[in-house]
Each structure stands twice: as C-alpha cells, then as structure tokens.
Amino acid sequence: METLEFRYPARDPVGRRAHVGVVGSGDLEVLLEPSGDGEARVRIRTTVDGYGQVWRNVLDRLFSRYHGAAAIEVNDFGATPGMVLLRLEQAIEESAP
C-alpha cells in the first residue's frame, strides 16, 4: 500500500463532484471535486507499490490537456495505466455540468 500526491497548475472551474469506477481487482475508484483554488491536486492510494513514475507519466499526459481546478482522490486496485487514464477521463466527463 502506497500513497502518492501530485499537483498541477489549473485555470478552469470544475462543474460538480463526480465519483466513477469500482472497487475491484485491476480497477480503480476516482472521486473528483472542485479544489477551491487555482490548483489541481491528485492523491493516490494504491495497493501496488513502486509505480510512482508511471503515475506521474499518466497524470502529466492528462494535465497537458485538462486544466480543471480539481481535487482528485484515487483508490487503485492494481489497474493498468490505460485503465487509469480512462477512469480519470470518465471522472472529468461526469464533472462537467
């Protein structure tokens, strides 16, 4: 079990709270809500240790095209990077008003 935190500059308001994904092997839960300031914050709890750089790569890619001031909580159960990106995109879509 490992906890990771990342921060990105942000400029766009977030519409509403969103909760996507499921608790289950190879999947993850994503909770996204307005951060209340001009920053995006991501907090990850994962059952699989040692993937910090992979998480950074996925998030760098996401925040190169998403600029929402979101506070994001991730509970990961060993999802692949592809699944992680899809769930994050899905949470962003659900958070649009």
Binding site: V20, V22, G82, E89, Q90
Partner: peptide, 23 residues
C-alpha cells in the same frame, strides 16, 4: 463491464476488451 458501474448509470462505462479497456 462491472455490475457496480452499470448500476451507477454514469454517462459512459468502461468495457474491458481484447484491445484493452474502452469507454
């Protein structure tokens, strides 16, 4: 597709396919 996800009725769901997960 996870039953729990379908039950929550999001705008899209994630399907696991031979080519990887898809929304």
């Amino acid at each position: 597709v996870a039953l729990a996800e379908l039950a929550a009725e999001p705008r899209t769901v994630v399907a696991r396919t031979a080519a990887g997960p898809r929304r």
